[in-house]
Structures are given as C-alpha cells and as structure tokens.
C-alpha cells in the first residue's frame, strides 16, 4: 500500500507541476525556420496568373523585342542583401528556339519579398505562322530552393507554382477574358473580328481591373462603334466581312 500511495503522491505532484508549468509558459509565435524558397505567384485577380500568351500581333509593327514580366514571391523573410534566383527552361516541354527569347538575370533585392522574372521575347518571322512554348521552372540557387509546387488560387488567397508556361507568337491571340466578358459585347471570337475590334477601339485588352480598366457603359459604346464600323465596311465593300473560318462577322444587338 505504501508503494501505491507513493505512486499516487508522485503522480499528483507531477500533475500539479505539469499544470503549473504549462500555465506559466509564454506562447511565442513561431517563425519561418525552413530554407528560403521562391515560387511563381498567382494573384487571383490576374487573368494571366496560370500562364501568359504574348502576341506581337497586337503590338506596333515597329516593335521587335519586348519584356514579359512574371511575378515571383519568396517564402521566408527578406534578406539584407540581393539574392539570385535560378530560372531554367524545361527543355522537353518547350519549343521556343534560343534566338526567340532571352532570360534576364532574376534578383530579389535586399529587403524585398517579391520580384519578377524578366523574359525578353524577340519578334522572329517564324512566330507569324505558329506559336512557340516555353515552360519556365525555378531551379536551385545559392539563395533559394524551389517553393510552392502547385497551389491553386481562391477568392481570398493567391496560389503558387514552381513552373510557369509562356506562349509566344505573332498571331492574334484570343484575350483570356473574351469568353467570360468580351463575348457579351462582341459575340463569338475570331481573329478577323478581334483585329476589327482592335482597329476600332484602339485597345487590345478589355480588363475590368488594373491600370486601364473598361466600364460596362464603355463596352456598350465599343459594341455599337464596332457594329457601325462593320455596317459601313460591308456597305462600302458590297460584301459582308467573313472571318478565318468563312463565317460572317456580326456583333450582338
């Protein structure tokens, strides 16, 4: 019995100490203690968050080279010095020739949490007939390991990945929000119609957010302006304009 009583006694003392120590312990927030990593950042509101299609066709004819910027974010805390990021091309998933692009050095500046991959794209004649693909991948550098492998966005948070596809061409490319937004005002997509819309409106993009957003009344105006232009064009030509598939171009009423 004495042994039993001692056990109970020690058990209670241990329990009491445990409770007391737990109660007194200060709860410190945990900090990021893993290796520094970096990933392609997907902003939910960016229509190009999952991939970018760069088309020289909607740019000035004089433009022979341009820079595509792809956002990156780090995991961990900012450093007090500039850090380098390794961006590599996944060869077996890419068709772009070396003369069609250049990857500029990617640096995360001291104190920064974000940066951009700067992809220099060159206007090559071959881009007029077919687009080329580049699959970019974050490699390991002295300062960063690849970060989030694949995380989808939600309405409340962004996502990330370590690979990012880019398509480059000199062919009119359907805007990413055509089906979801533009089609209400311009109807079904075709390259001929898109070229007409660009000629009439002077715009290549019709985003509702960002630096130069369009409003719904403005889209109604664009629709009517395109429709009037098409009517005049058809009247002047004596024949109705058709798209690359042989379908007559129309705009909704």
């Amino acid at each position: 019995m004495n042994t039993m009583a001692k056990k109970i006694k020690y058990l209670y003392i241990l329990l009491l100490f445990g409770v007391a120590i737990t109660a007194c312990k200060k709860s410190n927030p945990t900090s990021y203690t893993q290796a520094d990593r970096i990933y392609f950042y997907k902003d939910n509101y960016n229509p190009d968050k999952d991939s970018i299609v760069y088309s020289f066709a909607i740019k000035s004819n004089a433009l022979v080279q341009d820079t595509v910027k792809i956002p990156l974010r780090i995991m961990g805390v900012a450093a007090g010095f500039d850090r380098t990021v390794t961006i590599q091309v996944v060869a077996d998933s890419s068709t772009a020739l070396p003369q069609q692009y250049d990857l500029l050095p990617t640096i995360v500046k001291a104190g920064d949490y974000t940066t951009n991959v700067q992809l220099l794209v060159n206007r090559a004649p071959a881009l007029k007939t077919a687009d080329v693909r580049l699959l970019l991948e974050i490699g390991t550098s002295d300062d960063f390991l690849p970060g989030v492998y694949n995380s989808a966005t939600s309405t409340t948070s962004g996502g990330g990945s370590v690979r990012f596809p880019v398509r480059i061409n000199d062919i009119l490319t359907k805007p990413s929000n055509w089906d979801g937004f533009c089609a209400t005002y311009f109807g079904a997509y075709s390259q001929v119609k898109y070229k007409l819309v660009i000629d009439v409106t002077g715009r290549t993009e019709f985003l509702t957010t960002g630096d130069d957003p369009v409003s719904i009344p403005q889209m109604n105006f664009f629709k009517k302006k395109c429709r009037n232009y098409l009517t005049d064009l058809n009247t002047a030509n004596g024949i109705n304009l058709k798209d690359e598939n042989g379908n007559e171009i129309t705009f909704p009423n």
Binding site: S215, I216, P217, Q218, N220, F221, K224, K225, R227, N228, T231
Partner: peptide
C-alpha cells in the same frame, strides 16, 4: 442614351445613337 444601372464608380457617358 445611357443606363445608370452599372457598378459604382463606373465611367459612364452617353452612347452612340441607334443606327
């Protein structure tokens, strides 16, 4: 014409006339 039934702060002006 124009409709004022649009999201707040939309730039809103008078449209082209009917054809």
């Amino acid at each position: 014409s124009r409709s004022l039934n649009v999201p707040p702060n939309s730039v809103n002006k008078l449209n082209l006339p009917p054809e």
